[in-house]
Simulated assay, not measured.
Amino acid sequence: MLRRGSRGVVVLLAAIVTGCGAGVEGTPVAAPAGGLDSILLSDVDLDDVLGSKGIRSEPDTGEMTDELAAGTVPPGCAGTVRTAEANVYRDAGTTAALTRMAQGPGDGDSVAQSVVVVGSPQQAQHLLELAKLSWSACSGTPIRQGGATPSTWNLEPVDVRDGIVSQSSTNSVHGRCQHAMGAAAARVVEALVCGANVRNQGAAVVAAMIANADSA
């Protein structure tokens, strides 16, 4: 059962998600033939940004995540606990996506970084605005995540700096986490960093991804 006040969160998020369907006008941008991997940070880059040592990435994947199918509740908060969440991008004119997962040795930081190509630069900015609203609406509401490793997230207030939307949290399995999102032209970049001492690392990874995209 959702705690008191959660029904209001669900209603508000339903309104926000419904607003996604209207779309945003802008000049369509074709998906690049390749090169999304150059936007994602390498292991060496991640170690440099995170101040870690020996982080290792898994093979990249072009699959979107689907927290609703995994049973995450409240449903409207599914996009706060994963990157490249299909339900966030469903009306964004998405043409390509790439995600890279990485893990530090032992109990080191875990990192999910994603780049998603959407219909236009205006649509990318629209998704940032929606993230501010939906992540803020979910702040203070426990998020129960389904899937192979169920956990509970407690989300903190949203922070917006230098065009990057971020939200810190505590997770019952992964400890401290930070989810961040930014945009570079018609590409939305996201990072979710979890670990014992995570503070602003998610935003730092996103900033580095934006720099890679801008120089591509």
Rank of each mutant, 00 (worst) to 15 (best):
M1N: 05
M1H: 08
L2G: 10
R3E: 07
S6K: 05
G8K: 15
V9A: 13
V9G: 12
V11D: 00
I16D: 12
V17G: 08
T18G: 00
E25F: 04
G26I: 06
V29E: 00
V29D: 00
A31Y: 02
A33G: 11
G34S: 15
L40Q: 09
S42Y: 07
S42A: 09
V44N: 13
D47N: 13
D48S: 13
L50E: 08
G51Y: 14
S52G: 15
G54T: 01
G54L: 00
I55Y: 14
R56D: 13
E58D: 14
D60C: 03
M64D: 15
T65H: 10
T65R: 07
E67G: 06
L68T: 05
A69G: 04
A70H: 14
T72Y: 10
V73C: 01
P74A: 09
P75K: 11
C77A: 12
C77V: 08
G79D: 11
T80F: 04
T80K: 02
T80L: 08
R82E: 14
T83L: 03
A84P: 02
E85K: 04
N87H: 06
N87Q: 08
V88L: 02
R90G: 06
T94M: 09
A96F: 01
M101L: 06
Q103Y: 03
Q103D: 10
G104H: 08
D107F: 08
D109N: 01
D109M: 02
V111P: 10
Q113H: 09
S114W: 06
S114V: 10
S114N: 10
S120W: 09
S120M: 11
P121A: 14
Q125C: 02
L127M: 04
L128K: 01
L130Y: 14
A131L: 14
K132H: 08
L133G: 00
L133K: 00
L133D: 00
S134W: 03
S136R: 15
C138G: 09
C138Q: 09
G140S: 06
T141Y: 05
I143C: 07
I143V: 11
Q145M: 05
G146L: 12
G146C: 08
G147Q: 05
T149Q: 15
T149D: 15
P150S: 12
T152C: 03
L155Y: 07
L155F: 09
P157K: 07
V158R: 09
V160N: 04
D162C: 13
G163H: 01
I164D: 08
S172Q: 13
V173R: 15
H174A: 14
H174F: 13
G175S: 00
C177I: 07
Q178A: 12
H179Q: 12
A180D: 04
M181C: 09
M181Q: 12
G182D: 06
G182M: 09
A184E: 04
A186W: 01
A186T: 01
V188M: 11
A191H: 10
C194T: 13
C194A: 15
C194G: 14
C194N: 13
A196I: 11
A203T: 02
A204H: 02
A204Q: 06
A204G: 02
V206I: 13
A207V: 08
A208L: 01
A208H: 01
I210Y: 01
A213D: 03
D214M: 13
D214I: 06
S215R: 06
S215P: 00
S215N: 03
A216S: 11
